[in-house]
């Protein structure tokens, strides 16, 4: 893993591959596209909020469903004790 960090871009370099405006194929890079057009699209100064709520809103929806499913799993694990107890009793009796 230390060897892998050799190829990473220098931290804080505004001219690295990740931070340039147009990539090698001529398409706009996502981060700079968000910076340039977030306020124009949604009139919201906080760019992270716009990316979270508008550009990647389906991602956020799936993530919220993951959080809610974790809550439901917790309810099911911690309240489903009776069936297990009955099954184990029956196995002990037989």
């Amino acid at each position: 893993m230390f060897f892998a960090t050799v190829d990473l871009p220098t931290r804080g370099d505004a001219d690295s591959v990740m931070n340039q405006e147009v990539n090698d194929n001529g398409n706009p890079v996502a981060g700079n596209y968000y910076i340039q057009s977030a306020y124009k699209d949604a009139k919201t100064p906080n760019i992270v909020t716009v990316v979270l709520g508008d550009y990647r809103s389906i991602d956020t929806l799936g993530e919220q469903i993951v959080v809610f499913t974790a809550g439901l799993i917790l309810v099911l694990i911690l309240s489903g004790h009776r069936k297990e107890r009955k099954v184990s009793n029956r196995e002990e009796n037989s």
């Binding site: 505004a14 931070n19 405006e21 996502a30 981060g31 968000y34 910076i35 760019i47 990316v51």
Partner: peptide, 8 residues
């Protein structure tokens, strides 16, 4: 764009 951090 160099004046703002990458939001992604």
């Amino acid at each position: 764009v160099a004046a703002y951090l990458n939001p992604l």
